[in-house]
């Protein structure tokens, strides 16, 4: 057997070993478990589990996604109401989100929390219930960081109010 053959054999074995490893790992599917992330706000890493317990709306967006931009004012209004914490996670670099219209930049001002997702957002999105990666994607988490409502696609103020209200009810019950 030549060195090349041995290498090919090793590579093939490694390939099949990898496939077999697939079967050894169980898929996780625990929709009601507490969610967490550790993302950059441009100055520090923000860990959701280290923030004060509070009902939280999390919105994934991009500046080149029209429905993401359309729903941003509703999210900003909710944040300003003080009822819940609103965190936006841009799946773009900070320099790229600067391309958003000035009205959106204004909407992203505090009290909105503005974070940026990783370059490879697959794991983050899947963890937050969006395995296919469609945007916009919005979740409402209760104060235990468990999802009580989520929507992939454009949201409305009504949906947001309803989801937050239901989430609060779920908390009290």
């Amino acid at each position: 057997m030549t060195l090349f053959d041995k290498t090919s054999l090793r590579s093939s074995l490694a390939l099949w070993a990898g496939l077999l490893a697939c079967a050894a790992v169980n898929a996780e599917n625990q929709p009601n478990s507490a969610l967490d992330f550790e993302l950059s706000d441009g100055h520090r890493f923000v860990q959701l589990s280290r923030l004060p317990a509070q009902t939280t709306v999390i919105n994934f967006w991009r500046a080149d996604c029209p429905p993401c931009l359309r729903e941003m004012p509703a999210l900003a209004a909710l944040a300003r109401s003080g009822k819940v914490r609103v965190i936006t996670i841009a799946l773009q670099k900070p320099a790229e989100t600067l391309g958003a219209p000035s009205a959106i930049q204004a909407a992203l001002a505090p009290p909105m929390h503005v974070l940026h997702g990783p370059g490879e957002p697959r794991g983050l999105l899947a963890r937050f219930g969006n395995r296919v990666g469609a945007l916009p994607h919005t979740l409402v988490l209760d104060d235990q960081r468990r999802p009580c409502a989520q929507r992939t696609g454009e949201i409305t103020s009504d949906w947001l109010d309803h989801a937050v209200t239901n989430c609060s009810k779920a908390k009290t019950t």
Binding site: R62, D64, C65, P66, P67, C68, R70, L91, P121, R122, L125, V132, G133, A134, L135, P136, R151, T152, G153, E154
Partner: peptide
């Protein structure tokens, strides 16, 4: 149930 989405994956 959804309208208007942009996939990123």
């Amino acid at each position: 149930k959804t309208t208007g989405a942009k996939p990123v994956l």
